[in-house]
Design a binder for these strands. Structure first.
Lengths: 142, 142
DNA sequence: GAATAATGGTTGACAAAGTCCACGAATTGT
DNA sequence: ACAATTCGTGGACTTTGTCAACCATTATTC
């Protein structure tokens, strides 16, 4: 039982890794690489976002992140603002350009998922979403 | 409804991408990198495995795979055998060493999943596996 | 209140991962 | 036999990710 459990989980992991790869492959490649897209997304997603928050949520190396941020800044997609309360903290903020580029990209990713949406029946969609929710809940232990 | 669907899927994808990362991070780093582990796994997994099969199932570039195979061969974990029926096909076969190294690695990955196993109730485990199965079925359209 | 530790971010050097494109060798179809 | 196709190889390159040392600021401890 323990073995089947582990085997099943790993099987899904293998499957979903490929699925995720096929999802974001080349979707993003117009303007951004996948990592910078993820970072940009989280900057927009996390309120009062600092570098360490992104490190935490994406689980990436801080020096790596730093380089991504540097590139984003160079492209004028973000800017930084030192906190006055604690000068160690630097808030990362989307520029207008950053926001609109992110939007474009979001649309592109969404349109790829729209294809999936079309392909499925209403029932399948519901099961999919429900199952994903449950998995996340169980795995995060909440 | 379409928007919530897409949003939910993407939310799960973000979550699971990080989860997968945390799963294989440093598990593998003793002897192999993640890609060569995946390749090794598939060599063992696919009957009469040729390079193109791995390319297909892992969805990676064939030249990239070629380099990985070269390294595995150099380490004496695999060997190649041209097919007699069709000399374009080259079967990739695990050596004894390859098999035992793979086993070690498998154990390590499994032991990491054992932690997850312990943490969950019987019911949670069942839901998890069932949901993953359903997701895979729906996404592969079978 | 000076020394020390901890936190947040930066840098450089490097290693791993992945892409692109051209090629060669073997086979298939005509 | 000669295109077209399939499968694998190789070189050059870019992107992605890791590691360790570092600086600046704030928190802690004596």
């Amino acid at each position: 039982m323990k073995n089947t459990f582990i085997k099943k989980i790993r099987e899904f992991n293998r499957f979903y890794r490929v699925f995720l790869g096929s999802m974001n492959n080349r979707v993003v490649n117009l303007k951004f690489t996948l990592p910078s897209f993820r970072v940009l997304f989280e900057i927009n997603n996390i309120p009062n976002c600092c570098a360490r928050d992104i490190v935490k949520v994406l689980n990436i190396d801080k020096s790596y992140l730093n380089r991504i941020l540097k590139a984003l800044k160079k492209d004028k997609l973000i800017f930084k603002k030192r906190s006055v309360e604690d000068a160690r903290n630097i808030f990362i903020i989307l520029t207008e350009k950053g926001r609109s580029e992110l939007n474009l990209l979001e649309n592109e990713v969404n349109s790829r998922l729209k294809v999936l949406h079309e392909r499925l029946t209403k029932n399948e969609r519901e099961i999919l979403v429900k199952n994903m929710n449950e998995i996340k809940t169980i795995l995060t232990g909440k």
